[in-house]
Write a protein that binds this DNA or RNA. Sequence first.
RNA 1: GGUCGCAUAGCUCAGCUGGAUAGAGCAUCUGCCUUCUAAGCAGACGGUCGGAGGUUCGAAUCCUCCUGCGAUCACCA
Length: 622
Amino acid sequence: MNVQTTLSIKVKEAILNHFSVELPTVEFQPTRKDFEGDITVMVFPMLRFVKGNPVQIGQQIGEFLQKEVDAVSGFNVIQGFLNVVISDAYYLNFFKDIENTPYYGFASEQQKDAIMVEYSSPNTNKPLHLGHIRNNLLGYSVAEILKASGKKVYKTQIINDRGIHICKSMLAWQRFGNGETPESTGLKGDKLVGNYYVAFDKAYKQQVAQKIAGGIDPKVAEKEAPILLEAQEMLQKWEAGDKEVVALWKTMNGWVYKGFDVTYNNLGVDFDTLYYESDTYLLGKDVVEEGLQKGVFYRKDDGSVWIDLTDEGLDEKIVLRSDGTAVYMTQDIGTAIQRIKDYPDIEGMVYTVGNEQDYHFKVLFLILKKLGFSWSKNLHHLSYGMVDLPSGKMKSREGTVVDADDLMNDMTRTAAEISEELGKLEGYTENEKQDLYKMIGLGALKYYILKVDPKKRILFNPEESVDFQGNTGPFIQYTYARIQSILRKAEEIGVKGLETRTAQSGKHLEDEVSGLSMDSGSDTILVADNSPDLHPKEKELIKQLQLFPETVQLAAENLSPALIANYTYDLVKEFNSFYQQVSILGEQDELKKLLRVQLAKKVGQVIKSAFGLLGIEVPERM
RNA sequence: GGUCGCAUAGCUCAGCUGGAUAGAGCAUCUGCCUUCUAAGCAGACGGUCGGAGGUUCGAAUCCUCCUGCGAUCACCA
């Protein structure tokens, strides 16, 4: 039982004893730094139930707590705030408990029910850009956070591999490509295909301009440009299964996938299962038919099928065209149901999609609910704000995008410049250095994006490079590296009570976290009768460590990696302050020295765990 | 026009279910490297929390209205 729960019970008891009143709840908050104490009991809310002077009530509760609860070593009352001082022994005990917990902060038992997290889901006609990066980082991180909170998670994406957009690239390639391939040009496949998408747009605009110059109405010109008509024709051929078109489609999508794989790999994201729109775009029609029977949908005279959501404050929405073909909504209904069929343990889904589709998902979830699917109540749209440039929106066709690969390379290069200037990497091979630069550059980028509340839009200025100082990924990575440096030295000089086992630097977080865990045998020392007094900075650190598990849960509930990022920053700030103020290895008292080394080690583990949830790696040195 | 979201220091952002004097980073200025990594620490400067009402013992937080910005409202995806 944690202190807060104990205190809550005891506060109620105190009120019952003194006033014969049963309090429904007790409110707490961390004590502000400028007052003495660790946890503050709010007296004000009790005044609704207990008549009296808040200071006196606080005083009475305080006295009761001090007498009844071992962990309470003191208190003070200021206005309606009862500041409770928690004993060093309690914090030492707590730290002893978590010290050997390898997955500290992560839910120990996995729930049986699974949740599917969809993210990325790009079109296959152009390379990934900064907007996709935000999507990928959010989706990946939320999936990891959900896992840590005890959920079983499937990561997926639905790849938009068919439609007019890819036909445009295909047509332009046929027309202007001269048989170019990624191999012949040395270009990444997605880049090559993207170039033809741009080429299409250029040719299209020329044709439109020509028509307008010839006196044709602009709106008609836009619809009747020959190259557009050809693209539409190509799409029809594709749907009809035309061999030549399908073969080209497969080839060009194949190029794109190879390119995407490189980008995903560099970005460090992955998927457990993939869905392709070419497989799912016909799904959902039968469900619409069933819905018609049930009266959820209705058919208009022209044959199109609709749902009336005006009762819910929304509009009418089409779910099937008059010619019987599926719209986006039809597919999404079908795909959702298909996923449940494929993975029967799924009890909920998270869709990582930009906030421009808020309305779409509101409608989708409502339709699924009306169709009577029990899991519809566990559908979440992880809606995030757009990433805009100072010049405005990013537009692939106009070439105003920040390319994902370019951006990652730029970040790595900047990290390399800074690292080389600082010159702390003596003894590292060139490969090790490159890996480290990438780790730092990506750490900066990922943290920069993930620390912001998902629902807020991000203004990204490519001119002002992402910071490497202050509240940044590299700052946190640096602190981790510092801690590892201390731990290496601690082993060298042989700190008493510290196991000399070295941490394995495996690739997986799980391996490393458990690899880092300390052997037992040192625990009893901490709470011996003559326990050392805690330095205020040590106490603050333990308090911050204590918050990690609840932060993970909160982040999972809110689907917000930003909460993890901000927590980690606070922890690291606290550690650096501690590091600055007290000497760890220079401490004369062996017990204190051991405690500090162990604290540093635990902070390092939590940094690594937390950053793992953000998809950010941490270095041994930097 | 209807609906949804956002608005906090010069800039970028925190602020948990309402609680004490609204916090960080960047930028500007001051100190601190012969002691565990200065990508650091300590400090200064900087705010009518978009505006106006309301609820409450108490509002950046909840409600209403207004302003500004963004998104969305297609037999597009």
